[in-house]
Computed example of a mutant assay.
Amino acid sequence: MFNFSDFKIKPKENTFIGKKMDVDDVLNIEIAVLGFEIKDSTKKAGTKYLTLQIEVNENKRVVFTGSKTLMDLISQVPKDGFPFKTTIKKNDKRLEFT
């Protein structure tokens, strides 16, 4: 019988770590954004979702959101701009980095 270690399988580099947090739980709190990924949604066909690797209170957390504004804004951050500090605010019903 094989041991899993025999397969020499390593985790993907883009693996996000930490407990999942609802985006509402990090509103108006300064966070550090360590990385992100935008993928096609499996729940709503034809849409995308954003996964954020953040650090809040020195703890790594993961946030998922379908916010098109956040996806647009974070896509414009240069790769060498990570990590960065920000606060997610709600402007009417739209989420924004500040």
Score class of each variant (00 low, 15 high):
residue 96 E to A: 10
residue 25 D to C: 09
residue 59 N to Y: 09
residue 66 G to S: 09
residue 7 F to N: 07
residue 20 K to R: 11
residue 51 T to A: 09
residue 93 K to Q: 15
residue 24 D to G: 01
residue 53 Q to N: 05
residue 74 I to P: 08
residue 70 L to H: 05
residue 65 T to A: 03
residue 47 T to K: 09
residue 3 N to I: 00
residue 43 K to A: 12
residue 71 M to I: 12
residue 73 L to R: 12
residue 36 F to E: 05
residue 26 V to P: 00
residue 94 R to N: 12
residue 85 K to T: 12
residue 42 T to F: 09
residue 89 K to Q: 15
residue 21 M to L: 15
residue 55 E to I: 04
residue 75 S to D: 13
residue 86 T to D: 12
residue 36 F to S: 03
residue 68 K to L: 08
residue 13 E to T: 10
residue 34 L to Q: 04
residue 26 V to W: 00
residue 60 K to M: 02
residue 95 L to A: 11
residue 34 L to M: 08
residue 3 N to G: 06
residue 92 D to N: 15
residue 75 S to P: 08
residue 58 E to K: 15
residue 76 Q to L: 14
residue 83 P to H: 13
residue 68 K to H: 06
residue 38 I to C: 04
residue 56 V to G: 00
residue 29 I to P: 00
residue 75 S to N: 12
residue 5 S to I: 02
residue 17 I to L: 11
residue 70 L to G: 01
residue 22 D to M: 04
residue 31 I to N: 01
residue 26 V to N: 02
residue 76 Q to M: 14
residue 77 V to M: 13
residue 92 D to A: 13
residue 33 V to H: 02
residue 81 G to C: 12
residue 79 K to A: 15
residue 62 V to H: 01
residue 26 V to T: 01
residue 21 M to W: 09
residue 47 T to N: 02
residue 70 L to Q: 07
residue 37 E to F: 00
residue 23 V to W: 02
residue 56 V to W: 05
residue 42 T to R: 09
residue 31 I to V: 08
residue 57 N to T: 02
residue 61 R to W: 00
residue 92 D to F: 13
residue 60 K to F: 04
residue 55 E to D: 01
residue 94 R to K: 14
residue 34 L to S: 04
residue 8 K to Y: 09
residue 60 K to V: 04
residue 72 D to H: 11
residue 82 F to K: 14
residue 91 N to T: 14
residue 40 D to Y: 06
residue 92 D to L: 13
residue 64 F to D: 03
residue 30 E to V: 07
residue 14 N to T: 11
residue 63 V to N: 03
residue 37 E to Q: 11
residue 1 M to N: 06
residue 29 I to W: 01
residue 29 I to G: 00
residue 27 L to G: 03
residue 25 D to H: 08
residue 51 T to Y: 04
residue 91 N to I: 15
residue 76 Q to F: 07
residue 55 E to V: 04
residue 39 K to H: 06
residue 29 I to S: 06
residue 19 K to F: 10
residue 69 T to I: 07
residue 10 K to N: 07
residue 36 F to Y: 15
residue 76 Q to A: 14
residue 47 T to A: 00
residue 53 Q to L: 05
residue 12 K to C: 06
residue 98 T to H: 13
residue 63 V to I: 15
residue 4 F to G: 01
residue 61 R to Q: 14
residue 59 N to T: 09
residue 56 V to M: 06
residue 15 T to K: 11
residue 76 Q to R: 15
residue 35 G to E: 05
residue 66 G to A: 03
residue 67 S to G: 06
residue 92 D to T: 14
residue 80 D to I: 14
residue 20 K to S: 12
residue 96 E to Y: 07
residue 96 E to C: 14
residue 55 E to Y: 00
residue 75 S to Q: 13
residue 44 K to Q: 07
residue 79 K to V: 13
residue 39 K to M: 06
residue 77 V to H: 07
residue 46 G to W: 08
residue 29 I to A: 00
residue 42 T to L: 09
residue 54 I to Q: 03
residue 62 V to G: 02
residue 66 G to R: 04
residue 30 E to I: 02
residue 17 I to K: 10
residue 18 G to I: 07
residue 32 A to G: 04
residue 83 P to K: 13
residue 61 R to N: 12
residue 41 S to Q: 08
residue 91 N to G: 08
residue 43 K to Y: 06
residue 14 N to W: 10
residue 71 M to D: 05
residue 59 N to K: 14
residue 13 E to Q: 11
residue 30 E to S: 10
residue 51 T to F: 02
residue 73 L to T: 10
